[in-house]
Design a protein around this nucleic acid. Structure first.
Lengths: 130, 130
DNA sequence: CTGTTTGTTCTATAAGTTATAGAACAAACA
DNA sequence: TGTTTGTTCTATAACTTATAGAACAAACAG
């Protein structure tokens, strides 16, 4: 897995880390059981504080995407979407999609972009072939 | 247009305002030329500071969604998506879609949700019937 | 057993963001 | 003329972000 952090970005570092790990999971680059680097190791790699990495990992744990323990470190868990999740996700999706439509992107083009993004996930994470 | 603000939310007030106005534009509730309330009026309605409303309006202007002038107030502009926009939008869409997939929502279900959201916009904003 | 690594927890601080506040100005308008 | 409006400025309290140092307990290698 390749992570990169933009220190000049307006997006918080812990958020960048979280987002990239989430995308790696969706991609299939990180599968169920995949270990993540130790917080201090990852922090050293990027020259950032280990508390910042800790915050990203903590977020991912709260979202149920990884599990943390002293012996195995951080490992990716296979999650099944639970009821409260899709509702608030849909609200955020609505805001994002509205932004594209409001700015003049035709709805069918928006959907095409979404489809191609989702297809790029499926490419490495085949749904029907276990 | 019905706006509502949740003061207890972790989402900044100016962001809530911006998001709801963007959705109203996508919905077609706010069409090209529609006037928005004066900053002080809107602030008074919600019991918030007018600088907060100002910030939301300023964001929308930077995004090219509204125009502000002293005589006509804030009015919605019809925008055509320009090159730099879809690229950064796609990056954000990727993050959001990845989150759903990583959390176990099947890709086809995610796409169905996107489609139904986009359809709800189209309902009031017919593309082919002017 | 010893030393190291690891996640975890605590306090602390500097810089930036958010929301509020007051004041003032110029353009538009009744 | 007086009012409304967008715009701009300074200021402040509360919160967030990122960094930092310290310490602890569980797991593990040698």
């Amino acid at each position: 897995m390749i992570l990169n952090v933009d220190l000049a970005s307006e997006v918080p570092i812990y958020q960048q880390l979280r987002d990239q790990i989430v995308e790696a999971i969706a991609d299939g680059v990180l599968a169920e059981g995949s270990p993540l680097p130790a917080t201090r190791t990852l922090a050293a790699d990027f020259g950032i504080n280990f508390h910042t990495v800790n915050k990203a990992y903590d977020l991912l744990r709260q979202e149920g995407l990884i599990r943390l323990n002293r012996k195995s470190g951080a490992v990716v868990t296979q999650t099944v979407a639970d009821p409260p999740f899709p509702a608030e996700w849909t609200a955020r999706a609505r805001t994002l999609l509205a932004e594209a439509v409001a700015r003049g992107l035709p709805a069918d083009e928006v959907l095409t972009i979404c489809r191609s993004i989702l297809d790029s996930f499926d490419a490495r994470k085949p749904e029907g072939t276990p």
